[in-house]
Computed example of a mutant assay.
Amino acid sequence: MSARSKSRKRALDILFAADARGVDPLEVLSERLELTRNPSLGGSPAQVTPLGDYAEELVRGVAQHRDRLDEVIAGHARGWSLDRMPAVDRVVLRMAAFELLYVPDVPPAVAIDEAVELAKTLSTDDSPRFVNGVLGQLVPDVGQLRAQNSA
């Protein structure tokens, strides 16, 4: 597994926890970073493992652009509201949409493949196809959406 794949999984863990708790992802990120700095606080081995810069970038980016990401996802998830989606799928789609719209050094095919793999590993049997379909609908609009973001 590549370093960025591991970072995506770590970011997903934080974003999913924030979603489940109904709190700002930056709050969960801050808690996680504190456990990393102070393992004596009693975190699990996974919680005291350093996140890495890319995981932090993903969490911060999704938190900063969440409303825009949700708007874009909702516009491309035909027949599905964000509330109806499994929580893991929603978080995976937010991360992938963030990469597609705000991280130009990640090729769209990589962002989609990584999202589908996370869905395959962590969500329902139908999730990989659903995630792939939503992101596949989004890709043709990436250039226009990026331009709108910078305007």
Rank of each mutant, 00 (worst) to 15 (best):
R84S: 14
A109K: 05
A77Y: 01
Y102W: 14
Y54M: 02
D70Q: 12
D67I: 02
D83K: 15
A74Y: 04
G52H: 04
V59L: 08
V103D: 15
R84P: 00
R90I: 00
R94Y: 08
Q47C: 06
R84Y: 02
A55V: 05
V92Y: 04
P86S: 04
Y54L: 03
V116P: 09
L101F: 11
V88C: 13
Y54G: 00
V92E: 04
S81L: 11
V59P: 06
R78V: 07
L51G: 03
P108C: 12
L69V: 01
I112C: 07
E99L: 08
D67R: 14
L82A: 07
Y102P: 02
L58F: 02
S81M: 08
M85S: 03
E71R: 14
L118H: 00
R78C: 00
E114Q: 11
E114N: 07
V88Y: 09
Q64H: 11
D53F: 14
E71Q: 15
V92F: 04
V48S: 10
L118R: 00
V106S: 10
D83G: 13
R68Q: 10
E117K: 15
L118D: 03
M85G: 02
V62D: 01
L82Q: 11
L69C: 07
A109Q: 08
H76K: 10
V110R: 10
A77Q: 01
A96G: 05
V110N: 01
M85L: 15
S81F: 09
D53V: 14
Q47G: 08
A74T: 08
V103A: 13
P107Y: 11
G79H: 06
D113A: 15
V110D: 09
H76D: 06
L69Q: 03
L93S: 02
E56Q: 03
V72R: 06
A63L: 11
P50L: 10
L51S: 03
R68F: 15
A63G: 11
L58I: 13
L101Q: 12
L51P: 03
V88W: 07
A63W: 05
D113C: 00
E99A: 13
D53H: 14
D70P: 05
H65K: 14
L58Y: 06
Y54S: 06
D67L: 12
G79F: 06
P107M: 13
D70R: 10
D89H: 10
R78W: 00
L69K: 03
R66C: 02
V72W: 09
A109W: 00
P86K: 04
D83V: 15
R78Y: 02
V72P: 07
E99G: 05
R66Q: 15
F98I: 03
P50C: 08
E56V: 12
D83C: 02
Q47E: 15
Y102S: 12
R78Q: 05
L100N: 07
A55Q: 09
